[in-house]
Simulated scan of single mutants.
Amino acid sequence: MYIYLARLAFLVVIIFSYHSASAQESLDSLLCWLDNPQILKLINSTDSSLKTQVLTQYEFKLPIYHPLSKLRLNSNFGFRIHPLTRQLQFHQGIDLKASLDQQVFATADGIIIHTGYSRSLGYFIKIQHLAGFTSIYGHLNHILVATNQPILQGQIIGTCGMSGKTTGVHLHYALRRNQQYLSPSLILHKD
């Protein structure tokens, strides 16, 4: 129930950010901490018709759904000892266990802003979403989309692999809002 309320509050804060400058200022700090007491206050002070409207209009436009058919966490967001370099390093996303050529899904509606290859991420895809969100999918085996292509939540965009700097097959999934990395675990929909 708490996770549902936190996700709902997240959506309510997003909608308020379009209507109020002061809400926009508080949005940046609230997004990183979905268990903030201000969010619970916001939920209690918001009428149910607005909650319904927010969920209906923005459910598929915010990156809250699974990039894989099952979420099995391999490595979390934050500081960690990198498995290859053995150095303390900030991990800007999460690593999800996967099998070779397992389908990767867009976590929300958006536009493909970049596909390519980098030494660290291997083959990757970046999708621009509503409200300044960008989702990043790395270590892919195949890219099935092109730059500037519109994407729907749940659409297959690629397949898992082990390209780039990796110890095995998995999906690196990262989430940014206005160039700041967020923990995807706080935002992704839980079954």
Rank of each mutant, 00 (worst) to 15 (best):
F79M: 12
D28T: 11
F90M: 05
E25C: 04
Q38Y: 13
I113E: 13
Y117N: 12
F77Y: 15
N141A: 13
S69C: 08
V145P: 08
E59P: 00
S118K: 14
I143Q: 09
S22R: 10
I94E: 08
L84Y: 01
N141M: 08
D35G: 15
F124K: 03
V104L: 04
V54N: 02
H114A: 15
E25W: 06
L62F: 09
I136N: 04
I136S: 06
L31E: 03
Y18C: 03
Q24V: 10
S75G: 13
Y65A: 10
S20I: 07
K97Y: 14
L42G: 00
P37S: 03
G138Q: 01
T56R: 12
Q87C: 07
V54A: 15
A21H: 06
I64L: 10
S75T: 11
L140D: 01
H129K: 09
G78M: 03
G122R: 07
K70I: 08
I111L: 14
V54G: 04
L42N: 00
F79A: 09
L121H: 14
F124I: 05
D101T: 05
G93E: 02
L50Q: 01
S17V: 00
E25I: 13
I111M: 09
N76M: 04
A131M: 04
Y137G: 05
A106R: 07
S48Y: 07
I94C: 07
I64E: 03
P83T: 00
I64M: 14
L144A: 10
I94S: 04
D35C: 10
Q89I: 06
S49I: 14
S20A: 02
Q128P: 07
I94F: 07
D109C: 05
Y65N: 12
Y65S: 10
H66D: 05
F90V: 00
R72V: 15
V54H: 03
L31T: 02
Q57S: 11
Q53G: 06
G116R: 10
A108V: 03
H139Y: 04
H129R: 06
F60T: 11
A108T: 07
H66S: 13
L73W: 12
E59R: 11
P67R: 06
R119T: 13
S69P: 09
K41I: 02
D28W: 11
A23Y: 05
I64P: 03
N76P: 11
R80T: 09
L30F: 10
S22M: 09
T107W: 06
R86Y: 11
L40F: 14
L27H: 04
